[in-house]
Amino acid sequence: MKPVIDVSNLYKTIDDFELGPFNLSIEPGLVTAIVGNNGAGKSTLLKMLMNLVKPNQGDIRLLERNISEDESWKQHVAYLPQRLLGYDPFNGHQLKEIISNLYPNWDESRFNKMVDMFNVNLSKKYGKMSQGMQQKLALALMLPRNPDIMILDEPTSHMDIPSKYLLMDILVEWMEEGHRTLILASHQTEEIRKLADTIAIIRDGDIIGHYEKDELSRYFTQYWLADSLPHKTLPGEVKRKGERIVITNQERELEAYLKRHQLKWSQKEHIDLNDAISLMLI
């Protein structure tokens, strides 16, 4: 299938911070999580996808069109940044009026449903709402636009736990309705585990990998050895814990090595997704 977003050789410098050069391809119908440590460049990447930040070099194709050529693609994409500028002086009713008028496919019943589920008080000014409530309203103003692609930058960072679960159900439903694509920058492990199909990992300005989630869940294996580990670094070794535990990303090579050196192991276990991501970001 043709990618809905195709990033090639993208490179950007901001002061002394370098982002890229990187390549990323996003398939339709999937949820892609962008994860990384703080300041890794996730938000900058998303802004570049929206043509809000210009790269120094490289190309971004969105729905097979170069985003810098014309802006017709914008009606197919909804982007939720971490901070919405200009919303503060308006209340929920006013914001809905402004935004719904900009989108011909606006789905009023979905907006009402989300406002209801999240218990948003539309008479309150956006600037006076708690950060969690602002995120709820912002999402309720996002999904009813019925975009093909939705890009959410840490959409639930301030939301309470039940609301996060509610949103996951809403997003599942939204994904089911058509050939939709969701890009989610997130630090929320639950969201990544339950929603993501692929995970792109960004560390210090570089995409160090883009994996199918289930591949990442089995990427690292931890071995418990019967005796102390040798001093030499073992095949695929990424970490040791104490004297007898080693984590590798090359199961077969490690097992062959252990066999050759007559080192016995008593147990092995795949490292779960959260720990695997942490190992990659260290």
Binding site: L30, E212, K213, D214
Partner: peptide, 13 residues
Amino acid sequence: RALSKDLEVSVIT
């Protein structure tokens, strides 16, 4: 999509 969420696996699987 719903089963993938429950099982925490990708829709590809």
